[in-house]
């Protein structure tokens, strides 16, 4: 009984080379649009949105096109003086996701000192739970994503000493599944995005030894579909952001070469918008900064020469990680 595989078919007339200039224009346009209304309605995810856009530009060697002083004023104003956490934008509550995004942006621009760093450290530490896990904000939602955000933030600030790392590792270990993957909580289904979070976490804490390396790497390889794209779970459609999460995970496991890089490259190229620039989740869909960043980052890991080298743990330019003297674990 043969069931057709859930996948997409790449069009003959698809883009086949990197449209770097167009992608840079796409991002810059988003940042410079005079249409204030668009700006107003995306405020709930602005900090992360800025991280996606600015990192994408940086990977394209175009960082200087967006050097704006008000960017730093804005980030500074999003830090909550009481908790120390950083919000998506003004009039929002602080959240761990946006706290990490802000710290990532400021590290890229070497401007971390504008923050109340002790405040950030205190905020992140306050979110650790008795079982070692982290909640995303004061409302207490627990998810392995937040474990990653916590250690990524603290390691960029060189303040890993402020949390109980062993307990945090133990929690991640309880989220390891029978197929070698990781989910959002203990016994939750394996999911490529959460696998990336857990491996990124273990890379930062130098504990990749707890992973069933080849079992997990094989599961990750299985995510590649005939179109070349990667999905996030069995029987799901391929998606550029999952391509990054699977690929960076394989990189951390030292098994990047197990998938077909040519096929994946073809798939990502096909997700470019030849007119507006930018990259979408699948061929023909609307481009956005999120998939643009992860598409470019995946191409960087594949060794694409016109894109800066990306660090697989932090999804930031490798040169920034080097400048900070960080050496997250990567298995050979």
């Amino acid at each position: 009984m043969a069931t057709p595989i859930k996948d997409v078919v790449l069009d003959e007339n698809r883009p086949k080379t990197l449209l770097a200039e167009k992608h840079a224009d796409f991002i810059i346009k988003l940042f410079h649009s005079e249409d204030n209304y668009e700006f107003a309605i995306t405020d709930y995810l602005r900090m992360s949105g800025m991280y996606w856009g600015l990192t994408a530009l940086d990977l394209l060697h175009k960082r200087d096109k967006l050097l704006r002083v008000d960017l730093f004023d804005f980030i500074k104003s999003c830090q909550d003086p009481e908790s120390g956490g950083i919000s998506a934008s003004l009039n929002h509550d602080p959240h761990l996701l946006h706290t990490l995004s802000a710290v990532q942006i400021l590290c890229m621009y070497d401007k971390i000192d504008i923050l109340d760093i002790e405040g950030v450290v205190k905020y992140v530490a306050s979110l650790q739970q008795p079982d070692g896990s982290f909640s995303g904000d004061k409302w207490g939602e627990i998810d392995t994503r937040f474990s990653f955000c916590a250690v990524a933030t603290l390691s960029l600030l060189k303040r890993m000493d402020s949390i109980d790392v062993d307990k945090a590792v133990k929690f991640i270990e309880t989220c390891k599944n029978f197929d070698g993957g990781f989910g959002s909580r203990p016994l939750s289904e394996s999911h490529a995005g959460l696998i990336y979070c857990c491996l990124g976490f273990l890379s930062i804490t130098n504990r990749l030894d707890i992973v069933d390396r080849d079992t997990l790497a094989w599961w990750l390889c299985e995510r590649q579909l005939p179109s070349g794209g990667l999905n996030g779970r069995p029987e799901k459609l391929p998606d550029v952001c999952y391509s990054w999460w699977v690929l960076s995970s394989l990189k951390l496991l030292g098994r990047l070469h197990w998938i077909s890089s040519t096929d994946l490259e073809n798939f990502i190229m096909a997700c470019q918008d030849g007119e507006t620039g930018g990259i979408s989740d699948r061929p023909g869909d609307v481009a956005d900064p999120y998939h643009t960043l992860f598409g470019l980052a995946a191409l960087s890991l594949l060794g694409y020469s016109n894109i800066k080298m990306v660090n697989p743990t932090y999804c930031m330019p490798q040169e920034v990680i080097d400048r900070l003297g960080l050496k997250p674990q990567v298995l050979a």
Binding site: S33, N36, F39, A40, T42, G49, W52, N91, D288
Partner: peptide, 24 residues
Amino acid sequence: PIPQDDGEEPVVTIAYSKEFTDVY
């Protein structure tokens, strides 16, 4: 009402409506 006025960098495009601005 307090309008949004903290910069000009729209980051992600979503269809906009006047209703949206009013409510927020």
